[in-house]
Design a protein around this nucleic acid. Structure first.
Lengths: 316, 316
DNA sequence: TTTTCTGGTGAGCTATTGCTCATGTCGCGG
DNA sequence: CCGCGACATGAGCAATAGCTCACCAGAAAA
């Protein structure tokens, strides 16, 4: 019953959205057509937006962004690069790049032949997954590059892989491990056990890796999310860490560190150099050094970012 | 200079549209960001819409429409069928189906391998062509199924084929003939001359035919547009004509008539049964018998219509 | 050089939209 | 059967968007 109701409500929302955005009617007219109050029509339209029943696609390649993308692509020898217009009011806003990441995932997942998609960390990646158009692709595989058990061992954090699998019906491989083990030995033991080895094997064959890039400073996401302690963070910074991909800290030249938390990480390290298509997704002035290092070190061979960040990277 | 200006203006329009629709800012905020007055920001947003720099895509298959489409597809054994929500305020409005037709053309034309698209008559087809996303495909071919010289011999009517070719850079084959010749003999002579034979040959290999469907009554488009006289129209109606496709009149069972204006038509007749993908595009209560006949007679094997029309067709 | 014309601009008004709040309705458990 | 919580609804208001108008700048024509 509730589902029935929901369905017809979404249906109306879609209809309202259609009449509003495509047919160009006012909400008043739509209200009359659908026999509801104007307020309800407004709610339907905004529901349509909220549920992403309708999406906006920018057809026009904004020249400035295209040019930045082309320069980044050439300079760092990337297989894929997208630059979206910056949003001066919210320089950290992830919406723009999430949209493009979702688009990339969409087109990758649309393939009829089975593909393997590997997902890393990051707000952009999470937001992107939410925006993927549902499509039935049971033969695809979605694999996590990072452990999905948080530091305190109890809660599992936001389950990106599961969400994407929901939307595609694909098989998925979360990584049932804590992010950090207590010692190097223990890490080595854990990564050898059967289910984990399986995940690693699938990840190694991924057609697309989509990863966030974190900066290693006081505001490092890995610390904010509670995956590493303040002391661990400071130690890595002392060792030269400037950025992090799936938790793996690297220095200003994009070389993975061989010490500190990197010895106890369970997540799958970036390939050096990146062989499979590995797209980094990140925006913000604070991340510029981290992104530039990842590009220089060949930790990623694709980038989705915004105009301001792209400019900053190129001007270094 | 003008081009430069236009370009940067469209660029700004795209940027404004992006900030408005995707980032969700108000026009006031956008005005501040782009350093223009709010009025200009509003103009940029509406320009963005007018130029179709941004498009809306409805992700949610509206259940009712989907169901109607599925039923039509099964009942008449169609290769393609789309039903868009009806617009109660304008039952004849062609915007909705034009959007879908444009989409169909878009996806057909997006192909890298050369395709041939054949276009018939009708407001929906015309409007669809206007909405096609420009894309550079010089190896495609666009061919007209109907003569583009109007009855009085002077003016050429709306040049659908040319417009579509403009947007794709494709080769195009208009048909440099009057719609009707003065006698059967003359028609037979004309259709055998070299350039026309060439057009017919290309049309025969079309991958997609997109045709309008006209009803044969007092409001027949072929008459309103001045292609056939009132007397000719009435004669065809007396002979049982109920609809027409590219001018070819057919009866209630979808059989092409072998008399009257059909003997003097220069346009390429519908195949019976339709072998290549032939999509009919039409809406409106008045067209229901004509559409139903075309479906029953197999003159078309695809249909794009609206909800109200779809319902009426199924309820006959 | 002056005139005319096209097209862009900001001011300001009105229609449209988004949102809040008080109220109503439905399903569920007591 | 009644009360309770969760929403959905419509009224009404403030914010936002769309539009008209008078004006201006630069290009083309005289």
């Amino acid at each position: 019953m509730a589902a029935e109701n929901d369905k017809s409500r979404l249906d109306d929302a879609a209809r309202a959205g259609w009449l509003y955005f495509i047919a160009g009617h006012t909400q008043d007219e739509i209200a009359k057509m659908l026999q509801v109050s104007r307020a309800s029509a407004q709610r339907l339209v905004s529901l349509c937006l909220a549920e992403r029943l309708i999406t906006f696609r920018l057809e026009h390649p904004i020249a400035a962004c295209m040019e930045l993308a082309a320069r980044l692509k050439q300079r760092f020898d990337l297989v894929h690069c997208e630059v979206v217009p910056a949003d001066p009011a919210a320089p950290q806003a992830v919406a723009g790049i999430a949209e493009r990441c979702a688009n990339l995932l969409d087109s990758t997942l649309r393939s009829e032949t089975p593909v393997i998609v590997a997902l890393g960390t990051g707000r952009a990646v999470r937001a992107a997954v939410e925006r993927v158009t549902p499509i039935e692709r049971p033969n695809h595989q979605i694999v996590s590059l990072v452990g999905n058990i948080s530091a305190d061992g109890s809660a599992s954090f936001y389950d990106t892989v599961g969400r994407l699998a929901d939307r595609t019906g694909a098989r998925h491989y979360p990584m049932p491990l804590p992010f950090l083990m207590s010692s190097e030995d223990e890490r080595n033991k854990m990564v050898r056990i059967e289910p984990i080895a399986k995940v690693k094997a699938v990840a190694a064959r991924a057609d697309l890796r989509l990863v966030g890039i974190g900066q290693m400073d006081q505001k490092a996401q890995v610390h904010i999310d509670g995956f590493v302690t303040r002391d661990e963070l400071f130690e890595m910074m002392r060792l030269g860490a400037i950025g992090e991909i799936t938790g793996w800290a690297y220095d200003a030249k994009g070389r993975l560190l061989k010490a500190g938390t990197n010895k106890r990480l369970t997540s799958i390290p970036p390939e050096v150099p990146a062989k499979t298509t590995t797209i980094g997704a990140a925006v913000g002035a604070a991340k510029v050094p981290a992104i530039a290092a990842a590009l220089n070190g060949g930790l990623i061979n694709g980038l989705i970012t915004d105009e301001a960040t792209a400019r900053a990277i190129l001007e270094r």
